[in-house]
Amino acid sequence: MNNIDLIEKYFKKSLNDEEQVLFDNLLKSDQKFKEEFDFQKDLKKVIAVNQRESLKTTLQGFEDKFKKNKVIPMKWLMAAASVILILGLGYIIYQTSFNNSPEKLYADNFEPYRNIIQPVVRGESVDTIEAIAFAAYENGKYYKAINLFNSIEEKEYLKFYEAMCFLKLDKTQEAIDLLLPIATSNTNVEDLRFNFKHKANWYLGLAYLKMGDKNRAISQFSILANYPEDVYKKEKSKLILKKLN
């Protein structure tokens, strides 16, 4: 029997007494034999760890299969239903509150007032500063329009259009500062074309919405909604008030 067979028998636990003595002696005296034995012992451990790892993977496979086949218990179904219900309600609440949020109301309703002062007629030469200003306004060149509006004689309607420019540029506070005197003025402008009081109420209301100032917005829309006669944006104001309350 050679030494390799002895090692093999050791791993099979089949050394007899005589072989065991021989084995023990070789381990002490023969360095090469010891090295070979140690190597195989290490290998046995390595293989065991390796096998356990692959067995663990196999077991995880059983587990995945088990989870997939498992009938979902009623309580989980109920829990799932509750979650869906809560999410659904949350979505509806979110949607409604967003729909009625001041920002949304502003975005839905704001639209700069059309130029009724100096309609730009195609082909017609434009020479006055006011005409150039309105042309800029119509073309969406709001900064240019503001500069031009400021460079001519102060008129209420010019302030109004300048406010439109600021609103368009998201400079809401500047717009409010311009609109407030118009909305509160008592001057009675007979020519409706130049009467911007109610329009100022409307845009002021929208500007407050944009600022998130609900109460001030409500007071502006209320002026229009409760006006005894038919005025600019009366019905629209009622609608907004309904959504705000």
Binding site: F11, F39, Q40, D42, L43, K44, K45, V46, I47, A48, V49, N50, Q51, R52
Partner: peptide, 30 residues
Amino acid sequence: EKLTNKQKVIAKHFKMLGERCKEVLSLFYY
């Protein structure tokens, strides 16, 4: 289960052995 450094080296190379060798050695030692 902690492998010694020597065993880690063996483990690394054992994985690169051919399938047949791995099978034979596993059947014997494991």
